[in-house]
Structures are given as C-alpha cells and as structure tokens.
Write a protein that binds this DNA or RNA. Structure first.
Length: 302
DNA sequence: AAACTCGTCAACCGCAAGTAC
DNA sequence: CGTACTTGCGGTTGACGAGTT
C-alpha cells in the first residue's frame, strides 16, 4: 500500500517551537478549533506539519495541562497503573488529569524506572528482583526450601490453568484481540488464588505485565501496534502486596475507568476499588519518602 | 575555566487503528 | 470492499542545562 509522508518535507519547519508559533497555533485553535490537523498549519499560517501542530497542542499548549513536578501521589498512581496497564501511556495519562502521555512516559523513563531498579523492583514486571545467590545459598543449607518453592510454582500454575480452562479461553496466538478478555479474567484468578491454600488475601495475584516480557516467545501474542505481547497467565502472575481495600469504598475520580477496564473484583464479589488511598499505600514499590524530587513541586517555567 | 558526563524532556519518527470515500 | 487519508500511540532522538572532574 504505502503511504506518503504526513507532510511535505520541503518548507516545513522542524525543531523547537517559537513563542510566535505557539501564539499562532493557540489563537487559531481557540478561534476555530483544531478541525483537520493536516490543513491546520496552512490555515493558521504555520510552516509546520499537522502532526507537529497536534503534538505541540496536546503535549504543551492545551489549557488544561498541569505542568510542573509530579506529586508523590501522582508518582504512586503511575507506578500502580503501569503494573496493570504496562507501557500504555495514553491509558495511564487518561487517569491522571492534566498530564500527557508524553510527560508520563518521560517521567517514567527518567525517574520512576530508575527508582524501581534501585529498590530492587523490575520496572517491567513490577516483581521484586530475586537475589539468586542468596536463594541458592539458603537452598544449600536447607534443600527443602527449593522444593517448597517449586511446589508453590506448580500449584500456582495448576490453579491458573484450571481457571483458564473453566473460562474457555481461546488460544492466545489465534486470538490477538483478546486483550480485554485476559484482563477481565485477572480478577477471577485473584479471587480464587486469594482463597486458595497457598496464598492469603494479603498477596493477591496481579498480572505481571501486559507487555514486553515473555519467558516463552511462542505463547505470546501481540496487541495493538504489535508492540505489546502478553505473558500467559500461568507464567505471568506474580505476588504483589495488597493494593486494594477489602471494604467497599468509593471510586476515586482520578481513576474512573480502572475497575471497568481491569474488572478488578474483590474477594467478596464486590468490585475492588482502586482508590488513591490504595495507591498511596504502595510502600513496597516506593519505600520511604523517596529520593524523588517530585515532592518539591517546583513549577517549570518555559 | 574548560572539557566532559549525565539527566531531562520536547519533539520527531514510524506504525497501526480508525475513518472517509 | 478496497484504498487513501487522518489520528493516536509508543519508542527514540538530540538539544540543552547542570553537575563533576
């Protein structure tokens, strides 16, 4: 098929926007609305391509954008949402009013990711990175510990396999669009697991990650853009600290669609609410008041 | 003071879904 | 129904400033 460039490269300016250009774009959109982005630059008298204008508007000029450092609560929310949504920055941004996907992505890559690594947490899977040497040395002293570890893994796999069968899951590779089904099934696994013999309710199972990590390449499938791959449930579930309340709480407006998206369900069959409180309680992912400068709330000046 | 390294983030690129024709 | 176009998304780049040697 093929497609031409989004804009004529000749005579199209690139690079940083000048205040004059910002002014033109803002004034035009406030008067006319964005309309067709492709024709906007011409109509607004800008030597830019429509894509560049759209990006500039959505990431910088939009009036509802909240600029400045991320608060501690925002940071924790991002971590929690990322553990569920993976690198779906736009989905995460949708739950953080005033923040753009680009901003969140940058903040993740420059701050949060490093902090998680520092704290021994895999930023991709959100699982604690295991110190294999200590496990092995303890296994040498106490061989039964290894046995119980593997038994636990087997039981976990069996449970999730049976759950998958009971829900008549189509073959992952043959149903690339089953993302939502998989997400919807997480709570079933959580509920059953939390009442099972080997996991209590303080260690609910969560999807390790919705993308990017595949211990078994043959059993992954791709999502939108073919850049996201799924870890099959029986391999992709890790124990996580309890991020939710058991009691019935009110949904937090900052994450209005999360329960709908993930189908999170509480052990008592009510929806598990993803509240800010629960987000803030994520101390395991961010012990202490953080080394993060985000609490300083310094407004950026541009 | 200069050179170098590192961190940050705005902006670009390419891909794919959605939509219009 | 097929093709072309638009829009949205995520990954990546590179300019720039701050910190360090």
């Amino acid at each position: 098929m093929g497609r031409g460039p989004c804009c004529d490269k000749n005579g199209v300016k690139k690079g940083p926007w000048t205040p004059e250009e910002d002014d033109k774009l803002t004034t035009y959109i406030q008067l006319q609305g964005p309309g067709n982005w492709r024709s906007l630059p011409k109509n607004a008298g800008l030597q830019r391509c429509g894509k560049s204008c759209r990006l500039r508007w959505t990431n910088y000029l939009r009036p509802d954008i909240k600029r400045g450092k991320f608060s501690f609560e925002e940071e924790e929310t991002i971590i929690q949402l990322h553990s569920i949504l993976g690198n779906r920055w736009s989905a995460i941004a949708a739950r953080l009013p005033g923040r753009t996907d680009n901003e969140i992505k940058n903040y993740w890559n420059t701050h949060i990711r490093k902090r998680l690594l520092r704290n021994g947490i895999d930023p991709v899977t959100h699982a604690h990175l295991l110190d294999l040497s200590s496990i092995l040395s303890s296994a040498l002293c106490n061989p039964s510990s290894l046995t119980s570890l593997s038994t636990l893994q087997i039981q976990e796999n069996q449970l999730c396999n049976s759950l998958l069968q009971n829900h008549a899951i189509p073959t992952l590779s043959s149903q690339p669009s089953q993302f939502q089904n998989l997400v919807d099934l997480v709570p079933a696994c959580i509920s059953a697991a939390s009442t099972g013999p080997f996991l209590n309710q303080t260690t609910p199972l969560m999807p390790a990650n919705v993308e990017g990590f595949s211990p078994n390449p043959t059993s992954t499938f791709s999502c939108r853009n073919s850049q996201e791959s799924f870890v099959p449930f029986n391999e992709g579930l890790v124990s996580q600290p309890c991020f939710y309340r058991n009691s019935t709480t009110t949904a937090n407006p900052t994450v209005p669609e999360l329960e709908e998206l993930s189908g999170f369900q509480s052990p008592n069959n009510g929806y598990r609410i993803f509240s800010t409180d629960s987000v803030i309680s994520t101390r395991l992912t961010s012990p202490g008041p953080l080394n993060s400068p985000s609490t300083l709330h310094q407004q950026q000046q541009h």
